[in-house]
Amino acid sequence: MGLDFTVVPKFFDVIFIGVGWTVAITIAAGLLSFFGGIVFAVVALYGPLLVRLPFRLFAWLFMGTPLLLQLFLIYFGLIQIGIDLPAFVAGVVGLGLHFAVYNSELIQASILAVDKGQNEAARTLGLSRGQALRKVVIPQAVRAVIPPIGNNMIALLKDSALVSVIGVAELTLAAQQAIGRTFRPFEFYVTAAVCYYFINLALEAGLRRIERHIQLSR
């Protein structure tokens, strides 16, 4: 069976919707991983011991096991305890939590690297411990790790293909639907790869703009 890319345009609508879902998942999971990363970092550094220790264990488990395995755990595990999440939500939660743990490691190191004088000055000016953290230390810490967090976002976009395995209708699953009707895997997977490549380029361009903006506002 030779290659025949002329069948691809007939499925442009399916592919286009898939691209839309992939972008939606990446944005939703990206936001979750960013803000989750900040929360996790604060909990890991300043939480009470009884919260900190189980959290460390959770972070350690998430960093040492494959994302695909975690997606199975979240999707089927939640069903087992009676929470029947739609696949989309399970996918976003799984991807978001996975990368939140990685972002949290970056932010923790960055919080510890913020000059101590900043915290002392803020406390002297009458800010409470929480206020100093929220308004002085964390903004500086997060700003310093935007480039590596950006790299995690790019990894997140590519790993979003994995949620097709738990049945989230995104780009990879859209390609599979088209393959199911045409039996042309090569053509449609290559099409999907091209789409991912361009989404990736757009994301990289967006991240570069954000980085430049942050450098200018310094």
Partner: peptide, 17 residues
């Protein structure tokens, strides 16, 4: 620039073509 999963699918499912 592309997901590893797609690369593996191209090789395994698309390879025979």
């Amino acid at each position: 620039g592309t997901p590893a999963l797609i690369q593996i699918f191209i090789l395994y499912f698309g390879g025979p073509q």
